[in-house]
Design a protein around this nucleic acid. Sequence first.
DNA 1: GGAAGATTGATCCATCTGGATTGATCTGGC
DNA 2: GCCAGATCAATCCAGATGGATCAATCTTCC
Lengths: 169, 169
Amino acid sequence: MKSIAEDETLSTNDYRASIFAGKLKELMVISYVVLGNNVVTGRFIEKRYRMPIQAWSSLYVVREFPGIRAKEIREVIPRPQNTISRAVSLLEARGYLRQEVSETDGREKCLYVTPAGAKLVDELVEISRLRQEEWLAPLTPEERKMFYQLSRKIAEGQKLLTTEVMSVD
Amino acid sequence: MKSIAEDETLSTNDYRASIFAGKLKELMVISYVVLGNNVVTGRFIEKRYRMPIQAWSSLYVVREFPGIRAKEIREVIPRPQNTISRAVSLLEARGYLRQEVSETDGREKCLYVTPAGAKLVDELVEISRLRQEEWLAPLTPEERKMFYQLSRKIAEGQKLLTTEVMSVD
DNA sequence: GGAAGATTGATCCATCTGGATTGATCTGGC
DNA sequence: GCCAGATCAATCCAGATGGATCAATCTTCC
């Protein structure tokens, strides 16, 4: 715990270095990375395409899996179901996606991208891939592969989306 | 690109495995990790402490750096200045934080945690540390160290908070 | 076959977010 | 010293978020 009153030369890099070395270092560093990137990406998608980032990510998933159910998007994009519902609704209104009632369950909607939606996805995947290169640039190819594998391990862990320590009872 | 219509046995793990192996694999995996954790953490902090997650993270930073200026919090938590301003306002109203006009610049506010705020931070740091152990559990200690170092490299890269490819003009 | 409980996506509602704006203060040039 | 431009935090406002609710549909048990 450092007091600014005594040391006016503490720079913002020192703030970060200090927090990034603390008890919650992994959380603070990786959150900084994702939050920081989302600021850039969210602003871009909002301004260029007039849609929230959740709409883009939902459309990307539907493009990859034509016929996917709305509820299934949640398994890839951990957002509440009504957030997905609204994204789907906006994408449909914009002509990027269409819904069909499932043949096997009258409650479910099967989602498909339209040609306009497919075009949009292709465009955004390419820009996002370039953007990904940008923030991954500090890593060597070997480091990048390692980062991916470790992130993958965490993503597939049993306790990412559930918790025993943060109970609300 | 896989069609569900032809293969009804595709499971949600396959959706994830497929997206996590695509062109945007690093982005999708690490976003899933941070978003997934934030769902758990945000819900807990909202319910237990009745505050948005940005208030907790802001308070944590003020606790680490007594006297820090509001604008400086942004360097650690990449959120807009008005988000920080509102978090600070809420924390002050709750008695967790106090503001003093800076002696060197009448526009600036120097922030300090109150005893109640310090107690809250200690409590939340401990719970968050345990939570961190939860989602990091799939990694060995060596892997965890590697993940931290690679994340740190990305966080300190020149292109995390800026972009050349996602221009809006 | 009927009823209770579960599931699905749309909708509601309170709150949060983020860009823009504002008033107060500061800085640097003339 | 004065003024134009920059900076800081509070506030505004339109839109997004997330838990709760709802109607329609499905599943399972008796």
